[in-house]
Every structure is written in C-alpha cells, then in structure tokens.
C-alpha cells in the first residue's frame, strides 16, 4: 500500500461514526514500523487534532477507512509522536537518493510503500529511476532489506535489490519476500565460509 493512500482516510468507529481523518503517519525504529497516525478533524471540525491514533488501537486498515473500536482508543498526540523516529526507513525520506552498497545511484524516493498486517512497516520505496536501472526513467518499486542505513543524504540498499525491482504493486510483495530470502541466504553462506573472521 502506498503511504499517501492512507492520508485523509477517515477514522471510523465500529459503531459507524467518523471521528477523524488521517493527517500523517508516525514511524518508529530503523525498519520504519508504523507507530501510529496524527489526525485531522472531519467536516466542520477540520484542522489538526490534539489526539492521535496509536497503531495498537487500529482495528482494521482497509481500502476505504481506518477502523477503531471507539473514540476512547485515541491518545494524546504528544504521546504518540514521542515514539517517532526522524531517521529510519520511514523518516523524512521523500526526495532522498537511493544508492546501492556497490555505489550505483538508483533514483530518488517519491513514495513510501507499506506492508499492512498485524504490524505495518515500510517494505519498499517508489523511486524515479535513474538510467542505471534501464527503465527509461519510469517510476519503479524497490524492495528494502529488514534493516538498512539511512541518512539525510542517501539511503543504502544491497546491490541485489536491483534484481527485485517491480513496475507495480502487484507482485511487489513476492519480490520483497524473494529479496529478503536472498539476503538471508547470503548471510548464511558468508558465516559458513571457512577461514572468515568477524
């Protein structure tokens, strides 16, 4: 799911009342786990709210709404935002350059891709691809490893990520799994290599 698709989505109680809408995503940790959402009011009450929605209180995140059991699950905005990380995969990455660890520039991040299940976390980026990818400068999706290095300057991905680039979201889930499996395989064989020192 593209992060932008979640913005403005209504927050609806199981009783069928819309109590807020999503303003922004609060990320935590290096892997870019979704810690929660800041909120705007609805309709006449538009504008930022003092309350926020912690991820633990999300009952369901669907195509059309974010469901919660009731209004009482909202927390103070400051409490939720305190858990956020400025760095990490979900931080302020839009516009950052993606570099492979072999030193090739792959493109610029235009969108954050989330996987949503029991937890929600950043699993990839949509990038305006560089020539190196041979995609004629089109937007493509690039999978992320479980952990990665991010700075304000660039974001470093393993060179193998290039092999798992996809053009659209269908099939991207499988690409992430295959990419991460490959990385684990490599780690495994590296640790078994004879004569290697830490």
């Amino acid at each position: 799911m593209r992060a932008r698709e979640i913005m403005k989505r209504p927050v609806v109680t199981l009783a069928g009342e819309d109590i807020a809408e999503i303003k922004d995503i609060v990320y935590a940790g290096e892997a870019g786990e979704v810690a929660g959402f800041t909120l705007n009011g609805r309709g006449l009450f538009a504008g930022p709210l003092k309350t926020a929605l912690p991820w633990s209180a999300v009952h369901g995140l669907g195509r059309d709404a974010v469901m919660v059991t009731g209004e009482d699950v909202l927390e103070e905005r400051t409490v939720v935002v305190e858990r956020s990380a400025r760095s990490g995969a979900g931080g302020d990455v839009l516009g950052s350059r993606v570099l492979t660890d072999s030193g090739t520039y792959l493109g610029e991040i235009v969108e954050v891709i989330l996987s949503v299940g029991e937890r929600a976390e950043v699993v990839g980026y949509e990038i305006d691809s560089s020539e190196a990818l041979g995609k004629d400068g089109r937007k493509v999706l690039i999978p992320l490893p479980d952990a990665l290095s991010v700075s304000g300057e660039a974001l470093m991905v393993p060179a193998a990520a290039v092999e798992f680039v996809t053009d659209d979201l269908s099939g991207f889930g499988a690409a992430i799994d295959a990419f991460r499996a490959r990385l684990r395989e490599n780690e495994g064989s590296a640790s078994q290599a004879p004569g290697q020192t830490a």
């Binding site: 209504p10 109680t13 199981l14 009783a15 009342e17 469901m67």
Partner: peptide
C-alpha cells in the same frame, strides 16, 4: 451487522 452510525453501517 455491528454498527449503524452517521457515517457508515459496519
């Protein structure tokens, strides 16, 4: 059916 509110039926 679990909810009937002003925004939606859940």
């Amino acid at each position: 059916l679990t909810g009937v509110g002003s925004y939606a039926v859940v």
